[in-house]
């Protein structure tokens, strides 16, 4: 698959993002650059908290992929946010699957909604918190109810515990 010359689009990537992507690229054969795509998008998520179309195009140019191949992956995985409104420093996912639901996940969600003044799928105006609508079981049923904030799991939640976790975040 050849791609037209779009290397100038890659300038949008920061030095840190490039370093991250290069580290991923080093793990795969030189002719399999698309293997680094998940890692590359993760690097962009870390910096921007969402994947904008120009940034996805930049990743496509950097990896030598057609842009649509990047859009497909970005829109497939729920860990990637493609909506600017989802961009916030902290992404909160409360598991609402069966075990957590039986253990009071709905109250936890209601508590966070009230505390932050936003609904599921929204972010706070100061872009500090994004309350994600989690679709899947997060595989921590033994500690239900639970939530994931960024990459950290918090289990056996109560409203008080949620307060102390969220208040402790910068």
């Amino acid at each position: 698959m050849t791609v037209t010359d779009t290397s100038d689009k890659a300038v949008l990537l920061s030095a840190h993002e490039r370093a991250e992507i290069d580290a991923w690229l080093a793990r795969y054969p030189a002719d399999q650059r698309q293997s680094a795509l998940l890692g590359a998008l993760r690097a962009v998520m870390h910096e921007d908290h969402y994947l904008s179309v120009p940034k996805m195009d930049a990743v496509a140019a950097y990896l030598g992929l057609p842009p649509i191949a990047v859009y497909e992956v970005a829109s497939f995985y729920s860990m990637y946010e493609t909506d600017e409104r989802a961009a916030a420093r902290h992404s909160i996912s409360v598991c609402t699957n069966i075990s957590c639901m039986l253990n009071g996940a709905d109250e936890i969600v209601a508590h966070i909604e009230n505390k932050l003044g936003i609904r599921l799928g929204e972010s706070t105006p100061d872009r500090k918190f994004y309350l994600k609508r989690e679709e899947e079981c997060l595989a921590a049923c033994c500690g239900a109810p639970m939530m994931q904030v960024n990459h950290v799991y918090y289990t056996e939640l109560s409203p008080e515990k949620v307060d102390s976790i969220l208040d402790g975040l910068e």
């Binding site: 050849t2 179309v53 057609p66 842009p67 649509i68 859009y71 497909e72 829109s75 729920s78």
Partner: peptide, 25 residues
């Protein structure tokens, strides 16, 4: 697009019941 036209312009974005064929942008 990928195999014959040699330019991948359409793709399947989204997942499950949200899958759509299109150009995304």
């Amino acid at each position: 697009g990928e195999e014959i036209a040699g330019m991948r312009e359409l793709g399947a974005t989204g997942r499950s019941q949200y899958t759509e064929i299109g150009t995304y942008v």
